[in-house]
Design a protein around this nucleic acid. Structure first.
Length: 487
RNA sequence: GGGGCUGUACGCUAACCUGGUAGACUACUAGCUUUGGGAGCUAGUCGUCCGAGUUCAAAUCUCGGCAGCCCCA
């Protein structure tokens, strides 16, 4: 019997992810209390779950950086205009998005100050003083901060915010070889973070000259595919060569007593990746937070009535205490809500694992564990509670990553001709892999005719098809490129 | 870069066209009651995005700003 139609549940997500992705994303962002809008357009408040996730990414990344010898520093948020203008390509790339401080109180500043869109210029001015000898190198510094890029496009929480949190690594080397050798070390760290913490898949590769970072000699990135078929850039690594060294006069006396310019790298991972994580894993019930970045990994829901309330609560508290040393666990003992209400609430907020404990479990010496990713219920004996929880959390992580990878692979297509490229982009979206001659004219033309850019040139595809022909001009192809519409 | 839509309480919405006491649901607070997939009763708290204009009178009409969303390049 069907019963009365349920009234609209206003706390829940009311649109389907695959039917209306952007509306779904907006609801997910606000209703799950992960982050919230503020009075500043494009400026977000990170609520406890959101900030915890960022801290988890930050902690893990920072530890890996430190293992490789990178050291943390901190530089001012404000950059004098004359510094920002020193490297031509760099300033041209960022100028439209720079926010300026022009006044203190009512008096105008003699020289206006940029709110950092990135910190190359303020850092490298100091680097020019600090680097003197080959003995000072390599100098591998990093800072954790926020930057402001005043995008004119409409901001989207996390994916396109005007202020975002990130790391910016800025390293200095004596030789080109040393600098270039750092690339794979850093990209491997970022691959590990996205895979083992955020549980998202990506394509690592080289950016085209057209799409590289303003001021860099070469850029590399991990690109992610969103559920709506758009590609968004994730962590990035830039080889700056000697461009900034020459603009900022960063030199050293080498062993051979010659004065030489240094070689530099820049690299970053940002809170945008949390947006990718949300978009990738969330479903029609709400968020799904991968266990390693979840503020609450396990929520315990006691199920009792007036007769057994005390015994159930006592057992629930015992379980909480037992798990507390190994996991981030929360016992929801709020008496004002029914178990059903709590199930929905914690599913909305994306807690990876739920434990149900009631009369039945008291008798059998078990708990019911429910996975957020699959909804599967399993019974776990109390004597192997901790081991069981650990296993389930790992399985959840692995399953989330596997499904992200599957989505990426299922939406990566190949095209041999331009017509094919165009048709796939139009009909199916996603990533289309095709040969490319390396000329910007072809890159521009494809963008003009299809709206797709080259997100990057995946490392693992280069060199395997050197006999290919450019998908646009038909000349001999040097590269395999990923074409996609981008966020 | 261009075009469009929308702002009323935490949220969703009524009153707007035709200016005249801001109302319902939800949430929140208290009490009772209930508790294995968003239970019920009673009472209470909270609101017209901001600024100007028109008017005796503005949530309502006009203009500007701010914010959010969508489409195209």
């Amino acid at each position: 019997m069907a019963g009365k139609p349920k009234k609209e549940k206003q706390e829940g997500i009311t649109v389907k992810k695959l039917e209306n992705f952007s509306e779904w994303y907006t609801q997910i962002i606000t209703k799950t209390e992960f982050v919230d809008y503020t009075m500043v357009s494009g400026g977000l408040a990170f609520r406890p779950d959101g900030y915890y996730a960022w801290e988890a990414v930050q902690r893990a990344t920072d530890a890996l950086f430190k293992d490789t010898g990178i050291i943390n520093v901190y530089f001012p948020m404000l950059i004098p205009e004359k510094l920002l203008n020193k490297e031509k390509e760099h300033v041209e790339g960022f100028n439209p998005e720079v926010a300026w401080v022009t006044h203190t109180g009512d008096s105008k500043l003699d020289e206006r100050l940029a709110v950092r869109p990135t910190s190359e210029t303020i850092m490298y001015d100091s680097y020019s003083k600090w680097v003197r000898s080959w003995r000072d190198l390599p100098m591998r510094f990093n800072q954790w901060n926020s930057v402001i890029r005043w995008e004119f496009k409409h901001p989207t929480p996390l994916l396109r915010s005007r202020e975002f949190l990130w790391n910016e690594g800025h390293t200095v080397f004596a030789t080109r070889e040393d600098a270039e050798a750092e690339r794979d070390v850093i990209l491997r760290i970022y691959e590990l973070i996205t895979r083992d913490y955020l549980a998202i898949a990506g394509v690592t590769g080289k950016k085209t000259d057209k799409e590289k970072f303003a001021g860099a000699e070469a850029s590399y990135s991990i690109e992610h595919l969103l559920p709506d078929g758009l590609v968004v850039q994730g962590p990035a690594f830039h080889f700056d060569g000697q461009r900034f060294a020459k603009a900022f006069d960063i030199t050293f006396i080498d062993k051979d007593e010659e004065r030489k310019y240094v070689y530099q790298n820049t690299f970053a991972i940002s809170t945008r990746n949390l947006g990718v994580m949300i978009a990738t894993h969330g479903d029609d019930k709400g968020l799904v937070i991968p266990p390693r970045i979840a503020r609450i990994q396990i929520v315990i829901i006691p199920i009792y009535n007036n007769e057994n309330r005390n015994s159930v609560m006592a057992e629930a508290e015992k379980i909480r205490a037992k798990l507390n040393s190994k996991f981030r666990v929360f016992l929801d003992d709020n008496d004002a809500y029914s178990p059903g209400w709590k199930f929905n609430e914690w599913e909305l907020k994306g807690v990876p694992l739920r434990i149900e404990i009631g009369e039945k479990e008291l008798k059998s010496g078990e708990v019911v564990a429910v996975r957020r990713d699959t909804g599967d219920k399993t019974r776990i004996k109390l004597d192997r509670l901790e081991a069981g929880m650990g296993e389930l959390l790992n399985e959840i992580h692995n399953n989330l990553y596997a499904s992200a990878k599957k989505h990426l692979e299922a939406n990566t297509h190949h095209a041999a001709t331009f017509d094919e490229l165009k048709r796939i982009l139009k009909e199916r979206g996603g990533i289309v892999q095709a040969h490319w001659c390396g000329n910007v004219q072809c890159e521009d033309k494809v963008k003009e005719l299809t709206g797709a850019k080259i997100s990057n040139m995946p490392f693992d595809k280069q060199g395997h098809g050197s006999d290919g022909k450019c998908v646009y001009c038909g000349n001999a192809s040097k590269y395999v490129a990923n074409f996609a519409k981008s966020y």
